[in-house]
Design a binder for these strands. Sequence first.
DNA 1: ACGACCGGGGTCTGCCATCGCG
DNA 2: CGCGATGGCAGACCCCGGTCGT
Length: 383
Amino acid sequence: MAAVSGIRTLIRIHHSLVLQKSFRHSPLQPASTCITWRHCSGNNDPTLPTNTENKSLLENLNVLGVDLKMVRQRQPGVLRRSFTNEIGLAQFLQDKGANHKVIASIVSRYPRAITRSLDHLEERWQLWRNIFNTDAEIVSILDRSPESFFRSSDNEDLKKNIAFLTSLGLKSKDLHRLLTTAPRTFSNTLELNKQMVEFLEDICLELGGKNPEQFATSIISKNVYILIRSTKRVRTNINNLKNSLMLSDAELLALLEGNGAEIMDLSNEYLKKNIHSLEEKMSLLGCKRSDMKKLILNYPMIVYIGAATLNSKLDCLLKGGITIKQILEKPKVLDYSTQNITERLKELQRVGYDFEKNGINIMDSSKKRFVAKIEKLSGISEE
DNA sequence: ACGACCGGGGTCTGCCATCGCG
DNA sequence: CGCGATGGCAGACCCCGGTCGT
């Protein structure tokens, strides 16, 4: 409540400021938007750089409930600016449905947001609205990741990015998922996004693939994070996978075209560590190198699972009466959380489930189906 | 009616380093 | 030099249900 009236207070202050004649345009901003820009009261010549914090700005931010300590830690320079648009921004976000808490949090976490003009904000918002259906969706993303929306001041690049991604054959459903999940993609420069796409196409050709464009698009739609990774990272991971598993070009291509797309953006050390740890575990369990290769090709996500988690899952399954051979045949059981696995094993033990006779597919089913199955089994065992 | 197979859906930021510009 | 813009990094899975063959 207090902060809602805080915004009203600021707007009142702003109106009274408008009446003053002391406005000067920030040279970077179009004149039409300057009406809401706050003039620094403590500085007689706003064109001079100042190395002290702007008092009236601090007051405004306080009223908005912004965490100044956080601001100083993140982008202290913003507090020294003569012209900022915190009032306009707060009003703008409020109009889009953001509450005061969200607004305060956004400015606290990405202070530079208050340097954007209303025209800029409105244009950028509309560009995002080309992909999202409602303002509420955008607000929730800004709340999650203010930086994604505000970091770039280049709306032209955003336009070009949308056009570029569309030209790749990504459907509006894909774009929606991309912007929802990895909003930073849209604040990349067009150049950076192009680089990754070209890189993926090159990889495809390198491995003897015939349709590089489709390859790149399919990777992006399978791994929406790929465009916010560096080509260096992806390249290193591909090389590491290839070398440690001794993959042929055809095998590697198939892996990447399949579910391998998702593991390409892991951090290099993490991927290496996981492969190494899996190697050790497998050898401890008496498996051959070819078993491990097959396992990863069948179920690439296994290298996504952290070493500790993976080992505890494996141990859980083995202790629960499932053999490593069964796991190698149905690695998807490793998809489920350790907790889920533990609970299911307990339930199955209770009803006397025989994995040897019935297989382990029961471990890879939706909760609904699992519960139904258990109910049936306990009914039978009680008769 | 059942279970195996398989694909798809959700999901991800907050910080630091560097560069260029005024 | 200070700031804005931007690249890059570490972090580390889980779950559901349509469909088809029996």
